Amino acid sequence: MNTTVMTPPRTLRERMVEDMDLRHLSRATQRNYLRDVERFATWLGRPPDTASGEDLRQFQLDQREAGLGGPTLNSIVSALRFFYTHTIDRPDLTRKLYRVKHPRSLPTVLSREEVTRMLGATTSLKHQAILSVAYGAGLRASEVSKLRVRDVDGERMLLRVECGKGGGHRNAMLPKDLLYLLRAWWKEGRDQGVMHRDGWLFPGQHYLKPICYRQIHRIAAEAARAAGITKRVGPHTLRHSFATHLLEDGIDIRIIQALLGHAKLNTTALYTQVATRTLRNVVSPLDKLAVLPAPRPQASPDG
């Protein structure tokens, strides 16, 4: 008797999810890619694996005419490139996909005094530790949420980041004061019964699951509001501030690139445009020419 069990064919969506899992794409990236491919399929009116190059070209034109911005259009292009390259093995179609050049906005950066106020305005030791990791080690919110207790290396003063962007691994710095704070949180978490040696550094509502990105974003926004900061602040603002403050302190930009886990140096170089202390310390070549008249001394009040 033939006992072979026939498995149902996988849908395009299931195959795409498998391909994204194989390449360690983050859950947020997977959600965005699926959303953008579904957007194209809705526009197309039939399965996306039946599309032609001309369909892709016309879709981009229609989306631009609909008023979509450059970042959104580029996100769609990334999703479709992944789908046609990896899921249905039609990389030839990606020649019809074009990224849009757009001016990149400068990141919001907090002053050191604002960071101090924000960390002091948190409502619990756990929240203070979460935001301190984002600023003190320059981690993304997704990286903070996926830290495990074992990732804190107190001997080498490092944080092991094993779930970085694109599935990359790296070592982040662990400042001495941050280590003390994490030890205090470890003790409090153990007393509460939510911290375990093989568990998450920042458990969510259930100790077997990590805190989610949205909760970290709410923690950052509430702390900024409580500190009287009117800028739009999220957890990534602390990462931007970490990089900018290091640059202002004279740390080599390539070291900052490694600490942030940036693949390209030009991504890190963006912080040179917001490092105000560094800009103030640059001497203009005009000042070295000595051709302009020196400012006249002001008369004394009694003169």
Rank of each mutant, 00 (worst) to 15 (best):
L80H: 04
L270T: 09
G167N: 14
D49N: 15
H127I: 07
N74H: 09
V291M: 12
A51P: 01
T29S: 02
H236K: 03
T85H: 10
F202Y: 07
Q273K: 15
Q257M: 08
K187M: 09
R254C: 10
G189Q: 05
A226I: 05
I229H: 05
L159E: 04
L12A: 04
P107R: 01
E143I: 01
C212Y: 07
F83T: 01
L97M: 10
Y84H: 03
L208M: 10
T72H: 08
Y135T: 01
K231Y: 05
L270S: 07
G189S: 09
I255K: 08
T29N: 00
H262F: 04
Y213S: 02
E222Y: 07
Y207V: 08
G120I: 09
H262I: 06
I256Y: 02
V149A: 12
G67L: 15
R10F: 11
A66G: 11
I76Y: 01
R46P: 06
W185F: 10
V100N: 11
A129I: 05
Q60M: 15
H102W: 14
R46L: 10
I216S: 00
I88T: 11
S105L: 12
L61N: 12
S75R: 02
D249Y: 03
P91F: 08
V17G: 02
V283T: 08
R232E: 06
Q128V: 10
F242T: 00
P103W: 09
R23A: 10
V37R: 00
V274F: 00
R35F: 01
E54I: 07
P297W: 07
S52C: 11
N266R: 12
A220F: 02
R35M: 04
R57S: 09
K101F: 06
H24R: 13
L259G: 01
N171I: 13
E113Q: 13
S145L: 06
N74T: 13
T94D: 06
I219V: 15
P285E: 12
S241C: 04
Q58Y: 09
P48M: 03
Q63E: 14
Q30G: 00
R148P: 04
A290E: 13
L106V: 11
D153A: 09
H24N: 14
V161Y: 03
P9L: 10
R197Y: 07
L289V: 14
I253T: 08
R10T: 08
R15I: 08
S300G: 13
I255S: 10
L260P: 01
A224Y: 00
D36E: 12
A184C: 11
S52H: 15
G45V: 04
A258D: 14
K187E: 13
L158D: 03
R170F: 11
P91W: 11
T85F: 10
D89G: 09
A134G: 02
P47F: 06
P293A: 07
L22D: 14
V152E: 03
N281I: 05
A226R: 09
A184V: 13
L289Q: 15
L247P: 00
T11G: 07
H240S: 03
V100A: 12
E14H: 09
P8R: 13
L292G: 11
V161C: 05
D89R: 14
I216M: 03
G70E: 04
Q60I: 14
F242V: 02
T272D: 15
R57N: 05
I253W: 05
M118F: 11
W186Y: 12
A243I: 03
P71D: 08
P47T: 09
D191V: 13
V233A: 00
R218I: 05
R57I: 11
